[in-house]
Every structure is written in C-alpha cells, then in structure tokens.
C-alpha cells in the first residue's frame, strides 16, 4: 500500500470541473484507491463521492493506493492535482 500527501493546485478544485477527468484517470488503474480529506474519505472511481468530498484549491489531501499498479496510480493522481489546469 502506498500513500502520498499532496496539495490540490487545480484552480477550480478537485470537486468541481476536473472531477470527471480525475475519475476517468482513476479508472485506468486496477488498484483500490482512496482519497482522504478533512477526516472524510472517498473512492476516486466514484465521481459523486469525490465531488461530495469538497476538496477545493489549496486543500491538502492524501491519496492511497493498494494493488498491482499502486505506485503508478499514486504518481499519476498526484501529478493530476498538481496541475493548475
């Protein structure tokens, strides 16, 4: 299992416009994924869970992956939220 803490740099936040793309990216990996923010966790393969998490710009989130492609998954998802769109 791998976890990484990162800050959301996406201008409109992870919960808003970029959410759909984040979900599509997450679905490319077979590992079990989890995004935690503010004491809550959500499955990033579920757009509704991700949107309800409400991680706006500047939020510090933890991305966790467990499975065969866990390393690639965490790196790709961290890279995604690090973009500023």
């Amino acid at each position: 299992m791998i976890s990484k803490e990162t800050m959301v740099k996406l201008e409109s936040g992870l919960h808003a416009r970029p959410a759909a793309k984040f979900v599509q990216l997450s679905k490319r990996f077979t590992s079990k994924l989890l995004v935690s923010y503010n004491g809550k966790s959500a499955d990033p393969k579920s757009i509704l869970g991700l949107m309800a998490l409400g991680a706006g710009k500047g939020s510090v989130i933890v991305i966790t992956a467990e499975g065969e492609d866990e390393a690639q998954a965490v790196d790709a998802l961290v890279d995604f939220v690090q973009q500023s769109e």
């Binding site: 416009r17 759909a20 793309k21 599509q24 499955d43 393969k45 579920s46 757009i47 869970g49 309800a52």
Partner: peptide, 16 residues
Amino acid sequence: EVFMAHKEILEDEAGF
C-alpha cells in the same frame, strides 16, 4: 464538459 460529468455520474457504481 458538463455532459462528461453527467456520464460519470450515471456510471458511478459506488455513488449511484
């Protein structure tokens, strides 16, 4: 773009 999100929602196993 809005409809891309709509599709994701309709396909959201855990959330929907």
